[in-house]
Design a protein around this nucleic acid. Structure first.
Lengths: 328, 328
DNA sequence: CTGAAAGCGCTAACAG
DNA sequence: CTGTTAGCGCTTTCAG
């Protein structure tokens, strides 16, 4: 059916070893021999069978990206951005990328041991059991957008505290003193960091923080709008809201509109993630930009180095940057 | 290092054939033999090596999803949604999914012939050369969100004309007679279908269409807003805009706000795609819902049937549905 | 129900 | 530079 290395060997009159070399290390084969091989190969439409090669070499050049997140998956712009970075880097390094949701992590772990996958990038709310499972199977893993206590593995995260600080500073520079924090229901790690960042930043700015000014809501615009309505209806309302995601910020802007508060005139708003929606809102949303692509690329780099047995830093923090638009 | 079937065979005192059967067809092995094998296997932490199995079986259970799109990739909510569907179905069928951008389609095609990938799902603006390449290599392919003349392959598309009709009807029912069409720079197939759908729908509704009411713009909100400013500034402006994507619709709403036109009071707007942004806008956007998930699942189903050698329909059209919100 | 043995297609010493 | 040969780990007839 499909031509094999034997067919090429026979037709070109050289050994299979030479055919093999012609494809994997051409410089080791004399010019004219090489040519003969190529001719035979193309006559037979031969292409090396990668499975057989993997088998002989005992490796696959295949890695996996597992998105560990309840609700959205690859549909989440944030994780899709990381995926984009991973994809780019994987392509450049000639690695095959398997993408999957965390539903089937047991299966993934099995795959890993069976050597189909050499390393795994875990994104998001990873369960400790999952990490243990992979480690038990000797699979190299790197975490992205999360850190885990008690596990020895490379993590790639965004500088959450810096991001929050940038947003707070921007608001403070615009003259705001009553800055409220609105948090969506994100992962514990993210929420924790961003909350801590807020407290830090406000202290550094010598601005007050009251419990009333810290609000939790769901990660939907509707829920955020509802919470914001309460927050902004009082007589002594904050003049600025630092939202912990763009979606939450969009909800705040909806509430502002309903209450007849102009943005940024009567209420300033900052978002977080610098996602595609920022430029769709009116006014456009000032937001903290996370270099998700770079997070993904970094994860692949770390994974490769780890697979080569090199030492890798346990923690890589990617800086954020504030993108200023019209909402402050 | 890692335990192999031989180790298990030796420790359990049965042949490798029996070990193999124990894992792939347990019912063919006597109860107590089976138990002994399992014991030995777990003592050795043995897991079958999938590569070796693939090699022996001459198949991989691995498929690929290639997003063929210039700008965005997996970052595009639409293609991400399809990916989600593909992922789900692939997981259910125990297929591994390789996701990639089209940059490297030559490499993918090579992979395919080398049997690493059994079939490919192509999404978006596929180049004919690409299809030819895959077909030349005898790789089964299915197209999603596109149709190609002159190629014999299964396609999965959304019912574009139905979608446009639903939007137009909704607008007409709300009493609008001057309905403008705003199109972003999408793929030729999509633009063609939606334009044709608009003409059809307007004719069926006995509503007039003038050239002035059909506008092209880029696929960004900024560009759409700019075009919409022109469209809506005239004295004799349309009272409704049927936008061919949610992003374009968002641009139209921005323009409306700048011009002081209230939505939907003075201007009705419909979007297309029913993407996440619909509920973030104020008012929320009425939009045509595309069942992207189902498109992805269908593509996987077709691929599998094709791989089994079964006959598959050349064209599968997924119905759309209008999601009514506040913008009409 | 179980075992022996022949591959699956390619690579990597090791000789020549 | 090229050929010989022994695997890589598993599956699958074909006998028993």
């Amino acid at each position: 059916m499909k031509a094999t290395i034997y067919d090429v060997s026979r037709l070109s009159g050289v050994s299979t070893a030479t055919v093999s070399r012609t494809f994997s290390a051409p410089e080791q084969v004399r010019e004219d021999t090489r040519r003969r091989v190529y001719e035979a190969a193309s006559a037979l439409k031969y292409t090396p069978n990668a499975i057989a090669r993997d088998m002989a070499l005992q490796r696959t050049n295949r890695i996996a990206y597992l998105i560990c997140k309840r609700q959205a998956t690859i549909l989440d712009e944030f994780y899709a951005g990381i995926c984009e970075g991973i994809m780019r880097r994987a392509n450049a390094l000639n690695l095959q990328l398997i993408v999957s949701t965390a539903d089937d992590w047991r299966q993934m772990a099995a795959n890993a041991q069976s050597k189909q996958v050499e390393g795994v990038i875990l994104g998001g709310d990873v369960a400790p059991a999952m990490v243990s499972e992979f480690q038990a199977r000797n699979t190299f893993i790197v975490l992205v957008n999360n850190r885990m206590e008690g596990f020895d593995l490379p993590c790639v995260v965004s500088d959450e505290r810096q991001g929050i600080r940038q947003a707070a500073q921007c608001l403070a520079e615009a003259g705001h003193r009553r800055i409220a924090l609105m948090m969506g229901g994100y992962s514990p790690f993210i929420v924790g960091e961003r909350y801590a960042g807020f407290i830090e930043a406000m202290a550094a700015l010598r601005l007050p923080v009251t419990d009333a000014d810290v609000t939790m809501c769901d990660r939907t615009a509707a829920s955020a709008a509802e919470s914001a309505m309460k927050l902004l209806s009082g007589p002594d309302r904050p003049t600025a809201v630092l939202a912990v995601s763009d979606v939450v910020a969009a909800g705040v802007m909806k509430a502002a509109r309903r209450l007849g508060l102009s943005v940024p005139g009567e209420l300033a708003v900052t978002g977080y993630d610098d996602s595609a929606i920022c430029t769709l809102l009116e006014p456009e949303l000032t937001s903290v930009h996370i270099d998700v692509r770079r997070m993904g690329e970094t994860a692949v780099n770390l994974l490769c180095r780890g697979l080569e047995g090199e030492d890798t830093p346990r923690l890589t923090v990617i800086p954020t940057q504030l993108t200023r638009r019209g909402s402050v």
